[in-house]
């Protein structure tokens, strides 16, 4: 009788645990997310390094892999649903949607549009005085170009009023060599590097004149519809990374050394200054929230530039369902 009871007990236990349930009780496999960063490893990406190192992505069931590629390529990959997320500046979302890429901006990382015009011509005191001058910029596309156009727009100038000189990412060298006087740069990087070289300049930040939708996280409509909790988990981890970086920049800097190959050899004071300048631009209240006015401003500039002709509305470019 005792044996019969034991056999029955084992049978009951075995049948109550079907293979499906056994597999569900295992730790779920993390979702592998390859993230196009739009640039080379840089201290500006510290929140990602912090979130990865402290296990915030792992805790949210995400295995994050960095992909240091061009911004536009990352956006195209998101549009083609090859990757779920990418870093992108606001204008890229409109430009991509204009070409029917089904992407949406879901999280504001930078409060301010991070582009500035630097002028070593110290007599240049206002944007209006740029008329007839040469302005060097990386190329006639991307955030630098849109930022310049916004600056000219706010000063009542057009592209034909100035002489644009595309020089690639050689602004620092061109200024130091005396080849250029007016250059378009990223507000949280080149001004600090030039300052460290003892170069005097005037800075005209786009954000001070005409703030527009800035850098943040984009995803695609497929992911929003079919896997919204992945978006939530990803943004949760990233937000924790931002919070920790803001509250403890020194720790974030130390962590970043593991992810940026030459950071340990770089000038620590300068790199920390770049990190602090970046942090000052991340003060979005509450974190990730969408500023509708900035998106409307951005669209206004792009329509004026005739880069957006389809009559889309600013609301088509973003969703605030993940940042409320």
């Amino acid at each position: 009788m005792k044996h019969v009871f034991t056999i029955l007990l084992v049978f009951t236990l075995l049948t109550s645990c079907s293979p499906l349930e056994i597999s569900l009780k295992k730790t779920p496999e993390p979702t592998i997310v390859r993230l196009p960063m739009g640039y080379i490893p840089n201290i500006q990406f510290a929140p990602f390094y912090v979130a990865l190192e402290k296990g915030y992505f792992a805790q949210n069931g995400i295995e994050l892999i960095f992909d240091y590629s061009f911004e536009t390529d990352g956006i195209a990959l998101v549009g083609a649903n090859q990757v779920p997320f990418s870093l992108a500046s606001g204008e890229q979302v409109f430009l991509a949607r204009e070409q029917k890429l089904p992407i949406r901006y879901v999280y504001t990382w930078y409060r301010d549009y991070p582009v500035s015009l630097l002028s070593t011509d110290l007599s240049l005191m206002s944007l209006e005085e740029l008329k007839g001058k040469q302005i060097a910029l990386p190329g006639l596309y991307g955030a630098s170009y849109i930022g310049l156009r916004a600056l000219l727009y706010s000063a009542g100038l057009s592209e034909s009023d100035v002489n644009l000189n595309p020089i690639g990412y050689t602004q620092i060298e061109s200024i130091l060599a005396g080849a250029e006087q007016n250059v378009i740069v990223y507000s949280n990087n080149e001004p600090i590097l030039l300052d460290a070289q003892g170069v005097e300049f005037n800075q005209f930040s786009v954000a001070e004149y005409f703030n527009m939708a800035s850098n943040g996280i984009v995803t695609n409509e497929h992911t929003i519809e079919t896997n919204p909790e992945l978006v939530t988990r990803f943004l949760n981890a990233f937000r924790q990374g931002i919070e920790d970086t803001i509250s403890n920049p020194d720790e974030a800097y130390e962590i970043s050394k593991q992810y940026i190959e030459n950071l340990a050899l770089a000038d620590e004071a300068i790199q920390k200054e770049i990190l602090m300048a970046s942090i000052s631009m991340w003060q979005v209240e509450p974190y990730g929230s969408i500023d509708r006015e900035n998106w409307a401003n951005m669209l206004e500039v792009l329509v004026k530039m005739e880069l957006v002709k389809s009559g889309m509305t600013p609301e088509e470019a973003y969703t605030d369902q993940f940042s409320k």
């Binding site: 390529d73 956006i75 430009l95 991509a96 204009e98 070409q99 190329g139 006639l140």
Partner: peptide
């Protein structure tokens, strides 16, 4: 700001 290489870059930038 001119040339077919520039045009490729422009096309990529505008998707």
């Amino acid at each position: 700001d001119e040339g077919l290489g520039f045009l490729i870059n422009l096309g990529r930038g505008l998707f």
